[in-house]
Design a protein around this nucleic acid. Structure first.
Lengths: 185, 185
DNA sequence: TTAATCATGTAACACGTTACATGATTGC
DNA sequence: GCAATCATGTAACGTGTTACATGATTAA
């Protein structure tokens, strides 16, 4: 469902082509919800069938033709309805789903050296990720100024803070786990 | 893929019926990987077709008949192969996927009071979750003693520590986010 | 000249969820 | 008498991934 509402949310900022939506998605929402181009187009089709949006085909001579998607009243209502019922997704947010933890769980079947290497690689990725995220704050502030809505930008920053918090928690956890293993060794 | 390897890992501890596997899954792996009964049975069928396990039907008179699944050599090799290649899943572990963050991102479309309520509910769930997890340490230690393998139990505990770390990070984040909103109000 | 950007999708497959179906035994 | 446990699944649907297909313009 989230992809659907993500697209509604983006189109609520203004009408866009599928291509622009795809770009907007990967530059903002993709940090906490990933979707492929093919899925986005499929979803847009479905949303048009539901009457949540309309699309207009624009013929271009110098570039490929494009389709501009625009929210309908029905679409805006759906977005509002979704925003008013967050309960289910809060419960969902409590659930971890991690193929990596599956490996940690069964790491007793491998050597200590192998598990250490896995944890060290994880730790490095956490560090890399932290660095990448730390540069994003300015971009969000800037964008908030352009849009002229500091409150919106505040929520965008919250999602970034979440990413940073979880990255740093992952780093701490990895250090603790590595220490535990080195004790045993 | 993870479901598949989770089942391999559990069956590696010993042969089991689908029912027992389902129970074992929900008592251990489900904390970081959820699967429904119907999916487990479908997966077991596929794994039997791949030759990773065999099943034997046991006729019972007092209880419903059952099917006992046993790993083959091929299945054990697959498990070992999977454990030796953790790279892809480490990268995957860096990705957040959260319908809740999608809501936070678009919370600018709702009132501050509404967003505060959402964040407070999230914070409460984090607290509840923390309490639930804190009782699990003893159960794991006990189980490690029964199995007679403290190193295995150590990895099981690591996954629990991860859950606790991320819960507490979520709590801290929520408090910060709430504070930010109360400043604005 | 080659990579990036613009711009659209379809088809097949893989994985996850929901709803349905059956029925005996055991403990409160 | 009712809920939990034991024990198996099928069917349909929803969502996510991979591979494929096409082709012009523009900047390095």
């Amino acid at each position: 469902m989230s992809l659907r509402y993500g697209l509604l949310g983006l189109l609520n900022y203004g009408s866009m082509t599928g291509y622009e939506l795809n770009k907007a998605f990967s530059e903002s929402l993709s940090f906490f919800w990933q979707a492929k181009t093919s899925q986005i187009y499929r979803e847009l089709d479905a949303m048009e069938r539901y009457g949540w949006l309309t699309s207009e085909r624009i013929i271009q001579s110098e570039k490929p033709n494009k389709r501009v998607y625009t929210l309908t009243m029905g679409g805006k209502e759906e977005l509002a309805k979704w925003l008013s019922l967050p309960e289910a997704d809060i419960l969902d947010a409590m659930r971890v789903r991690s193929a990596f933890l599956m490996r940690v769980f069964f790491a007793g079947e491998t050597s200590i050296e192998q598990s250490l290497e896995m944890l060290r690689t994880y730790r490095e990725k956490c560090l890399e990720n932290s660095k990448e995220m730390s540069v994003a704050h300015d971009a969000i502030s800037e964008y908030g100024t352009i849009v002229g809505d500091d409150r919106k930008a505040l929520y965008w920053k919250m999602t970034l803070l979440y990413g940073e918090a979880f990255c740093s928690a992952g780093l701490d956890w990895a250090n603790k786990a590595i220490a535990l293993l080195e004790e045993v060794k």
